[in-house]
Simulated assay, not measured.
Amino acid sequence: MITPRGWLRASTALLSLSAVLVPASASPAAAAPAGLAPAGRHRTIPEPPSADQARTELDALPVSLPHSMSGYSRAKFPHWTKQYGECDTREVVLARDGEAVAQDSACKAIAGTWFSPYDNRTLDSAAQVDIDHMVPLANAWRSGADTWDTTMRKAFANDLDHSQLIAVSAASNRSKDDQSPDQWAPPSQDFWCTYSRAWISVKYQYALNITMPEKDKLVTMLNACD
């Protein structure tokens, strides 16, 4: 199995996330206080590489037909794992991507607003928000994750270090489902530049394949950066 480029960085991010989001002096009980969530390192999805770097990385990605979906299940990608205290990956992203996010003692977002860049919607309830995997789990499986072990898939599904997780409207996330950019692109073309750069970055970091129609659409979307 090819070792994905982002494996060491993703593993390090998962191990050290508490040091990023919780002060070193904080006790476990203080890690998920009721009230306003601590500000994250990023106000939204981590900034992907520039368009020029994305084009270079896109050219380096292997082009192949999709792998079989035989054996796939979401359970093979353990996600929304605990990051610190009672906070799991979903709650960390909700706090990171939202504004004035209030959490209860179990780290659940109980108030706040979230802007969904896929469809330019502002949401005022966490129940309206999904945490999207930029490269969907099923797409990753078809692109090479079928050869990974569970530890690798867990790191991929909870990767807070790269441009893999983003808070968006539940409606847009479910419309996207597990489709690649040639099958689905954000209705808001204003986000195409960021979306294509992020998609390419994740596939490059994890040494995943792309299809030719996928590559062609990503080239088109990158043109929005110009």
Rank of each mutant, 00 (worst) to 15 (best):
F191P: 07
S16I: 02
P136W: 15
L15Q: 05
I131N: 14
M152A: 09
P23A: 01
W184N: 01
A170Q: 01
L58T: 08
L208Y: 01
T81I: 08
P62H: 09
S64I: 00
P33I: 06
E99W: 09
R74D: 12
T81D: 15
I210A: 07
P28I: 09
W7K: 12
D132Y: 15
K154T: 11
G35I: 04
T122G: 05
W7R: 13
S27C: 13
V93I: 15
M221T: 10
W141Q: 08
E91L: 05
T151A: 04
A102N: 10
Y204I: 00
N223V: 15
R142D: 02
R197W: 02
P46C: 06
K176P: 09
L222F: 06
D132N: 14
A140E: 05
L36D: 12
S180V: 11
M69E: 11
P62M: 01
Q83C: 13
T89P: 07
W80E: 01
T122N: 09
F191T: 01
L218M: 13
N120Y: 12
S50K: 06
P48T: 08
S11Y: 05
Y118T: 14
D159I: 04
E99Y: 04
Y204A: 09
Q128M: 14
H42Q: 12
S143G: 11
M152D: 09
R41V: 15
P136A: 13
Q128L: 14
I2Y: 07
Q128Y: 15
T122W: 05
P48M: 03
K215N: 10
S201H: 12
V129L: 08
F156P: 00
E91K: 12
A145I: 01
C193S: 03
P62K: 06
V129A: 13
W114L: 07
L8K: 10
S125E: 09
L14A: 13
K76C: 07
P38Q: 10
P66C: 04
A29H: 11
D159N: 06
V92T: 10
W7L: 15
E214M: 08
P186G: 07
K108V: 10
M212Q: 15
E91T: 09
K76W: 02
E99N: 11
A157L: 01
S68R: 07
M134F: 12
M1S: 08
D149Q: 05
V92C: 07
E214V: 04
P66S: 03
G71T: 07
Y118R: 09
L208D: 06
P117E: 07
A224Q: 14
L160P: 00
P38H: 10
D59M: 03
M221E: 14
A198K: 00
C225Y: 14
L208E: 08
V202E: 05
Y195P: 03
I110S: 06
R197D: 01
L165A: 00
A207Q: 11
A24S: 15
I45A: 10
S125N: 15
R153Q: 08
R197I: 00
G35A: 13
P48Q: 06
T44Y: 10
Q183G: 08
Q164N: 00
